[in-house]
Amino acid sequence: MKLTLNIWRQTDANDAGAMHTYQVDDVSPDMSFLEMLDVLNEDLNAKDEEPIAFDSDCREGICGMCSLMINGEPHGPEVTTTCQLHMRSFKDGDTITIEPWRASAFPVLKDLCVDRSAFDRIIQAGGYISVNTGSAPEAHSVPVPRDDAMRAFNVATCIGCGACVAACPNGSASLFMGAKITHLGELPQGQPERDSRVTNMVAQHDHEGFGGCTNIGECAAACPKEIPLDVISQLNKDLRTAIKHGH
């Protein structure tokens, strides 16, 4: 496969940045998208040019480190992470536009790498439960209804990649927050901090400069883990309950 790549290049956070065009030949359909970029970078290295910076870690679709806006879709055209996206999803001769996540709360560090520590601070603000340390408690001592456990588990698959923010026309992180709120709020262990959790996480979210949700649904369509839109309803309900309880 031969491809034309339009890639965002930016030397550092203060650089204005611009799109650059690259040609890649000999792309195998079996390569992952990131392997294709690795090949391009080897080529750039050989020519003594600066390789393109992009984030990746596990390359198994479970860590949430990879990103990339590919032809206007976070993680590209398939419902998966960029590392699990393969070149067979593209055609020979395609032009592919690759951009970093765009959000004021996710400033570009270099090329395609953005700083997603805003998510870390949202988690720090309330994405935790208080438990006694020491030996693990007997698992059966706290019964969890099956449906609650399933819902908590399903939304706990959120890997915090930021695709929801990247897709959202408002630059909102509501799907991410909703996933965390639902994950912890469905379980008995998450109850003591339930009101303060939602209050603190939403306040941190707003403070970081994310936008407000307008329930358009581009986030859920972009989510590689298929987190459903109902977690945002849960988030809103928890905040409403927190207001009722005087938060």
Binding site: T97, E99, R102, G211, G217
Partner: peptide
């Protein structure tokens, strides 16, 4: 919340 716009953006969903 988004001051730099995308060059290409699809609106799936």
């Amino acid at each position: 919340a988004r001051t730099v716009r995308y060059q290409v953006k699809k609106h799936t969903g």
